[in-house]
């Protein structure tokens, strides 16, 4: 464990909690892409199946359980409890255009052609593009609630910190996972224009609105 990975995990946890609280407190999931949240629930489900097969640390197990519970709670709130506030007309990204290439890539490029390993690889590739429906929805509506931008900021920050974690682990532990690093780079690059808008607008107290 190193400071980048710990702050990365805490940033990820903060993002997940911010979103859950936003929906729960405002009793509304306006502006939130339910499709992205389903993809994140799928990412956690396929990646954390090893909860039952291998114990790494109490921290690892506890965080995985929290992530999975929050992910499914968020999906439930969007498609169940507060379905009336779900903006399906703007959440129209074709997720099959993500799932099919990700499945093919996971089967073709992985560390080992074993079920658990292919599922892990699938979850790594899927996570790198899972935010696209959300970013697409914001580009369609042309704006996002400020709390939603904070959610996206911490979500993007977490994988950016993981990039530094991998540099640290390569240098100090000789650990290197090309699949995770490449997917993490793609994931972080997808946030770049959002980071720019967040820093130049939201942090100056303005509302995030894309040039319509």
């Amino acid at each position: 464990m190193n400071i980048f990975r710990l702050t990365g995990d805490l940033s990820h946890l903060a993002a997940i909690i911010i979103l859950l609280l936003k929906i729960w407190k405002t009793r509304s999931c306006a502006g939130i892409s339910g499709k992205s949240q389903i993809l994140f629930a799928l990412v956690f489900t396929t990646r954390y199946l090893d909860l039952f097969s291998s114990f790494i640390s109490l921290y690892n197990t506890v965080m995985k359980v929290i992530y999975i519970m929050c992910a499914y709670a968020t999906v439930y709130l969007i498609y169940g409890k507060f379905k009336a506030t779900y903006d399906g007309n703007h959440d129209t990204f074709r997720v099959e255009f993500l799932l099919i290439p990700v499945v093919l890539l996971a089967v073709l490029i992985n560390h080992a052609f074993a079920p658990m390993e292919i599922l892990w690889t699938f979850s790594i590739y899927l996570e790198s593009v899972a935010i696209l429906p959300q970013l697409f929805m914001i580009s369609k509506t042309g704006e996002a609630e400020t709390i939603t931008t904070h959610y996206l900021f911490f979500l993007g920050l977490y994988r950016t910190l993981y990039l530094f974690n991998w540099i640290w682990r390569f240098y100090f532990e000789g650990f290197f996972d090309l699949i995770a690093v490449v997917a993490g780079l793609v994931q972080t690059i997808l946030y770049c224009d959002f980071f720019y808008l967040y820093i130049t607008k939201v942090l100056k107290g303005k509302k995030l609105s894309l040039p319509a």
């Binding site: 560390h111 080992a112 074993a114 993981y162 290197f176 090309l178 699949i179």
Partner: peptide, 10 residues
Amino acid sequence: IIARTQHDEL
């Protein structure tokens, strides 16, 4: 350095 398939990260 090839990554092992024991994934210890979240």
